[in-house]
Design a protein around this nucleic acid. Structure first.
Length: 430
RNA sequence: GGAAGAGUGGCCGAGCGGUUUAAGGCACUGGUCUUGAAAACCAGCGAUGGGAAACCAUCCGUGAGUUCGAAUCUCACCUCUUCCGCCA
């Protein structure tokens, strides 16, 4: 959520900056709602003040044993009017809040302008693209050759967009996650966390998945009371539970920066992705990811983003996978982000780079929704900044490892750093 | 699932219809004292919204209700603690 003060102070500027990311702000609606809010709020508060002072007078008069009927008569009808006004104010404030909740974050000044991913800017390419003297196989056929990558059984058990791993491939998947966690905790200073995979609606609102993107989520009904929040949601990323650790908290300055890493499954409905990446395990309803989250002082957030990006890159470097870093243009960024770098890994079978990590600075956008604050050096509360990035998507990393390390006979060389997690195995073969 | 108890500012904790304008303490900030520090003493110190400011409003787990007036009374729900049952 953006700061409502920005809208009050310079609506045109906000509208202009949002246009950059392809969002058309309904300025008129804001002006109207805000004017309504102001009128109703001041009238409401006026009546509340009158009620308060009259009630106090009654109390004092009664204590002295005086007659209170005159004061009582004076405010006889106040209650009804107040009740109506309070209800009205509540609904206007909700409308205003809903209006703000649907507005995406504003891109940082340095974000390149653009409409789609074709306008993204390549920052650097690292690693040498492997050349093969034979026809390269994609991970699906490599899985067939090796055995242990089974989409048919997964489809039987669950449906499309699920995968099932067996044997050494399943172990390699686990090895990747272990390796990532160990690297981030031992070398990059992150605290390992284990978090819930089912979260409430408030958490989803906090990080920006709700109210706008409910279709992307799996909702788990909860048969409980008549009222209240009856649903759990499966997390689409560990960003949600981890970032929400600071929701409704005021943390001490000394606790910053906070750096957390979590390995979790991620669940996405992939609504609207029909027909995209249907082959293989590139786009699944369920996949594992090691996620990096940083909670920071506002002045440190952009340095933090570069650092976090380098942590994700370190994994690719150690795995000897070629990749490139791309800075997303204004039109391609996610709803809550102010700046995003994507890391794309080289996939030989597709002869292209594919996203394997996305690292974003949300500035105070999520923190404002979450009321996540710290006490600054003046002792005042101030909103935190939040960052997160994949470090990395485990399934896609598995795909990249398989495809980039394939041998003419269909076997796969295991990268040096993973071997200790594979019981010393150097090669996957049938 | 059953029973009992409890949720109050950054933390602890009093308050159970009207000087609560949320006591008191801890922590924190400033000051006095001191070579410096500690201690002691003095003062300040919650959050959110509105307002240029004075100031006003809201907030005592959440939501409804009763009342001129609710932290306080009523109802529902949530969370936590203890005990019982079940269970990986």
């Amino acid at each position: 959520m953006l700061d409502i003060q920005l809208f009050r102070n310079d609506l045109n500027d906000v509208a202009k900056r949002l246009t950059k990311r392809g969002f058309a702000l309904d300025s008129e609606k804001f002006v109207k709602l805000e004017a309504e809010r102001k009128t109703i709020q001041s009238r409401t508060q006026e009546l509340q003040a009158k009620r308060n002072s009259s009630s106090k007078l009654i109390g004092q008069a009664k204590a002295k044993g005086e007659d209170v009927s005159v004061i009582m008569a004076d405010i006889a009808n106040l209650g009804d009017e107040l009740k109506q006004l309070e209800a009205k104010l509540e609904s206007v404030q909700q409308a205003l809040n809903g209006f703000l909740s649907d507005i995406p974050n504003m891109p940082h000044e340095s974000v390149p302008e653009g409409k789609s991913e074709t306008d993204n800017v390549e920052v650097r390419r690292i690693g040498k693209i492997p050349s093969f003297s034979f026809e390269v196989k994609d991970h699906v056929s490599l899985g067939e050759t090796l055995g242990g990558l089974d989409f048919e059984t997964a489809a039987k058990i669950s449906g499309a967009r699920f995968s099932l791993l067996r044997g050494p491939l399943a172990r390699l998947h686990r090895a990747l996650a272990q390796f990532m966690l160990d690297t981030h905790t031992e070398q990059h200073g992150y605290i390992e966390t284990y978090v819930p995979y089912l979260v409430n609606a408030a958490s989803m609102r906090g990080t920006g998945q709700l109210p706008k993107f409910e279709d992307d989520l799996f909702r788990v009904p909860r048969m409980m009371g008549e009222e209240g929040e009856k649903n759990f949601y499966l997390i689409p990323t560990a960003e949600v539970p981890v970032t929400n650790m600071v929701r409704d908290e005021i943390v001490a300055l000394e606790q910053l920066p906070m750096k957390f890493v979590a390995h979790t499954p991620c669940f996405r409905s992939e609504a609207g992705s029909a027909g995209r990446d249907t082959r293989g395990m590139i786009r699944q309803h369920q996949f594992d990811k090691v996620e990096l989250v940083q909670i920071l002082h506002p002045e440190q957030s952009y340095a933090g983003l570069e650092e976090l990006l380098s942590h994700a890159e370190a994994i690719l470097n150690k795995l000897e996978l070629p990749y490139r870093v791309v800075k997303l243009c204004s039109g391609d960024m996610g709803f809550s982000a102010a700046m995003t770098y994507d890391i794309e890994v080289w996939l030989p079978a597709q002869n292209t780079y594919r996203e394997i990590s996305s690292c974003s600075n949300f500035e105070a956008f999520q923190a404002r929704r979450m009321q996540a604050r710290f006490r600054n050096s003046q002792g005042k509360t101030e909103l935190l900044h939040t960052l997160n990035g994949s470090g990395l998507a485990v399934g896609r990393t598995l795909v990249a490892v398989l495809e980039n390390n394939q041998q003419p006979d269909g076997s796969v060389r295991i990268p040096e750093v993973l071997r200790k997690y594979m019981g010393g195995m150097e090669c996957l073969m049938r």
